[in-house]
Amino acid sequence: MEPPEKPDVAQLPQAVRRVLEFKEARRKQLAQLPPEEKLRIIVEMQKWARAAHIATGRPPTPVWNLDELMKRAKPEPPSQV
């Protein structure tokens, strides 16, 4: 399926265009965040998605355990022969 045609933003009311510009700038700011912070945001999105699924009677979607995910791995003890 082909992607939809590019909407003609110039035809939209100025107030809407301002909102779209703000959103675009916000997304660019988000792109600059450190990956660890983006992972936290993804987990927040997962919580929203899960709540929406439950609210609409669909099977709940998973939510990552961020603490566990960010846990630094401990080196393995040397294997004994």
Binding site: R27, K28, L30, A31, L33, P35, K38, L39, I41, I42, M45, Q46, A49, T61, P62
Partner: peptide, 11 residues
């Protein structure tokens, strides 16, 4: 993508 773009929902 977390290293290059805004965060996107993934599982």
């Amino acid at each position: 993508l977390v290293f290059y773009t805004e965060p996107v929902l993934t599982y």
